[in-house]
């Protein structure tokens, strides 16, 4: 018990919390993106996939709980370590010159907070439909298409995904460091893998709003007549 208290109270222990929860969230983001790629396989595929997920409610809610717990623990560690770091350097330098840190590493908090806001919006948009103008429970494909037909919404998704790319470009590499997964032999691989994962996730996710706006992904056939509605909906909002 004492050992656990010391571990979670230490900066390294909290960093490990950050890395492990980050890894869980990263795994989710990867699977989530891969699942959504089915939108390119026809208008019925996503609806079927959604149905499949809802068939096992215990599993679904279990996964949601783990994700929520991870997100909260990730943010807790971030807040705690941010406080430690701000206290450690209250007076900065007049001249700041960076050599090895990069834009991604120095904006982790900014991209993280943007992701936090995005996650809330995304759930209200495509999971609960609270902020979606034409949400129909279970009509995953159409919710997806009508949702992205609003340029402002698509724009926010794209910006958030660019933030996710930066966050993972540094985060995945950082995670290997925090968990002690370092060996000179695999050093280049660590950087390459972080870059590749970030690029794949960003490219896949950004392709969705772009494909809808470009008219490549269309609504499912029976409701095609309603396809003009979202344009009205956005003009009302603007």
């Amino acid at each position: 018990m004492n050992a656990a208290k010391a571990f979670f109270g230490s900066t390294i222990g909290q960093k490990v919390v950050m890395a492990v929860t980050g890894l869980i969230l990263f795994g989710f983001v990867l699977v989530h993106m891969a699942g959504n790629l089915q939108v390119y396989a026809g208008p019925t595929k996503l609806d079927e996939y959604g149905e499949l997920l809802r068939k096992a409610p215990a599993l679904l809610w279990g996964a949601r709980l783990v994700l929520l717990g991870s997100a909260l623990a990730h943010v807790w560690a971030m807040l705690s370590l941010t406080k430690v770091n701000m206290d450690a350097r209250p007076t900065g330098y007049r001249v700041e010159t960076y050599k090895k840190s990069d834009y991604a590493s120095r904006t982790m908090r900014l991209t993280g907070i943007t992701l936090g806001a995005f996650i809330v919006f995304h759930i209200l948009h495509l999971t609960t439909g609270t902020v979606h103008p034409q949400f129909v429970e279970g009509a995953v494909h159409n919710n997806f298409v009508f949702g992205f037909q609003a340029p402002l919404v698509s724009g926010f998704y794209i910006v958030a995904m660019l933030c996710l790319g930066l966050h993972l470009y540094h985060g995945v590499w950082s995670m290997t460091q925090t968990l002690g997964l370092a060996h000179p032999k695999y050093d280049l691989l660590r950087h390459a893998a972080a870059t590749a994962f970030a690029a794949i996730i960003v490219a896949g996710n950004i392709s969705f709003p772009v494909a809808v706006l470009a008219g490549i992904v269309k609504p499912a056939a029976p409701v095609i007549a309603q396809a003009t509605a979202p344009a009205d909906a956005t003009s009302v909002r603007e």
């Binding site: 390294i12 960093k15 490990v16 430690v84 450690a88 840190s101 540094h170 002690g180 370092a182």
Partner: peptide, 29 residues
């Protein structure tokens, strides 16, 4: 009262003896 590591690698760049951050991963382990 030292801060925590966010893996910027500025330490490695400044070290006059060029000690690499792989040692940090080793210590974390």
């Amino acid at each position: 009262g030292f801060g925590s590591c966010t893996n910027h690698r500025e330490c490695e760049a400044a070290c006059p003896k060029e000690i690499p951050v792989q040692f940090i991963a080793r210590m974390n382990r």
